[in-house]
Design a protein around this nucleic acid. Sequence first.
RNA 1: UGUCCGAUGGUGUAAUGGUAACACAGCGCCCUUUGGAGGCGUUAUUCAUGGUUCGAAUCCAUGUCGGACAGCCA
Length: 582
Amino acid sequence: MSLEPNAPPAAAPAPSDFIRELVAQHVAEHRYPQIQTRFPPEPNGYLHIGHAKSICLNFGIAHEFGGVCNLRMDDTNPTKEDIEYVDSIITDVNWLIAGWADHCLGLTPAKAPFYASDYFDQIYEYAVALIKQGKAFVCDLSPADMEAYRGAPDRPGKDSPFRNRRMEENLDLFARMRNGEFPDGTRTLRAKIDMASSNIWLRDPILYRIRHTEHHQTGAKWCIYPMYDFAHCLSDYIEGITHSICTLEFEVHRPLYDWILQNLALPRPLPHQYEFARLSLGYTVMSKRKLMQLVDENRVTGWDDPRLPTISGLRRRGVTAEALRNFAYHLGITKYNGVTDVAVLEHAIREDLNRRAHRRLAVLKPIKLIITNFPEGKTEELEAVNNPEDESAGKRRIAFSRELYIERDDFQELPPPKFFRLKPGGEVRLKYAYIIKCDEVVKDAAGNLTELRCTADLESKTGGATAGRKVKGTIHWVSAALAVDAEVRLYDRLFTVPEPDSEGDFKAHLNPRSLEIITAKCEPSLQAAKPDARYQFERIGYFTLDIDAQLSTKNPQLIFNRTITLKDTWAKAMPKQGACSR
RNA sequence: UGUCCGAUGGUGUAAUGGUAACACAGCGCCCUUUGGAGGCGUUAUUCAUGGUUCGAAUCCAUGUCGGACAGCCA
């Protein structure tokens, strides 16, 4: 465990909430030598944005108060866990805290994350200690009997007939449980507390159960495994955790957390548990069980499907760690179970990408446009700004020619009022290039639009005599001859309703149009697109290369994921138009 | 009808006995070679009732509504 204190950051704009206030108070009182938090996922699925909230809280507190936060696998149930999940958790956590709180990450001497299973020997000894004090006993009740004896929330339970076994017998039986002498489910180790307690978790809770299952970390060493309640508080204690922060559903378990540590008469200070409300986000589901269902039933392509709220999915979609952290920052920490509007996430993503993304021109749904007064075969180089938000991003040159593609949605033959784009006889600015006027609309025999014929004001480009002319609309374009094709994956929300899991089958609300795949025409510079770069396709949205893209082969294939659309006040005013999807 | 927890604009949060504020969303205007970004403005809030107090979102009482808990899951 790492013990060197981290220097508090210079002047980080730290959020404030009831947990941080408590921590600040404890720091002021010098209650602990150092603040220690932990993020304790069970490796039984991939991490999602709800975990990101918890990671930002736990690492954020360590970061702000000069402490350390341990990543700890809460791996006490080998029947549900897998090494694949361990690996993904390590990747996701490191990605999310990189460059921000990675210096707060507590690591074992072997530079590995922590595992509750590392403490199985110690936890076993603590169980023995409890037995010796007469505070735990081996119970032979079957699962069904156990349930019957437990009572109900409004009805007390009954003492197990095995509750008053002699200490020596308990010791012997527990050792034989460990030795594998009994089949699964035949015996448990239970704490001796109070079967009449109004808190069900204090009704002689199970501490150990028998599971003849190999563990992804400890192999075949154990056939008994501690329950969450027993392992968690002790793991916290062993690691020197001061603030054990978890979600609201563990509130009822806190008396048991405290009971175990107090009855073991451990040297102080003891860790304490604090609870906050988990994240619920609109238009998605957040439970690992439901996410796993979507993955297992191939409703999505995998845990990292860009439509999923998993950290790996968001990353693949193009969301940056910084955007996720800013989102978490704006969330706040309370004990109220609310549903956060996805617009808050979307805002954090756009704010981040607007600052960092280089602009490019790409046409998603092309229609050909001919500049009739521009010479055939001529190519002109025009200067384009890479990022108007960041002058240091520089400029690039883009090729202009007689035949172009423009967005199909940027032309309407019978435009509604306030349509600022191209229309018959109308003028529009081609971004970074000329003002053009639409002279002729060409259609095929079936009446489908095939081509637009326009004339350009050849003095209107940047630096030209009429460059200052005001036209209402500006549209994007690419040179037809030089454009490169790219597969573009247009993602939309996975569900059609704000709370898919509020009632009934959540899968009934899956959005059938959550993914549309198209071939776009891109400006040639996109051929050199970098895997980690974010691009804004001007007037369209933010895009990033997908991991499926083939970049270094003989026939490179560009594949872009749409991270998020640009805000579009026109689409909002004209709901029936609807460009690509939304 | 048990125990614990909670309730502030549409949404999420702040105000820690002293002018109810911030962000997102919405709406309007300005600006714009992105209908983006940005700027300015604006709509809208303390669950209810009673009490304590000069003064209550905040403290107390009662009620209402919501959430969590009866896995050998975490």
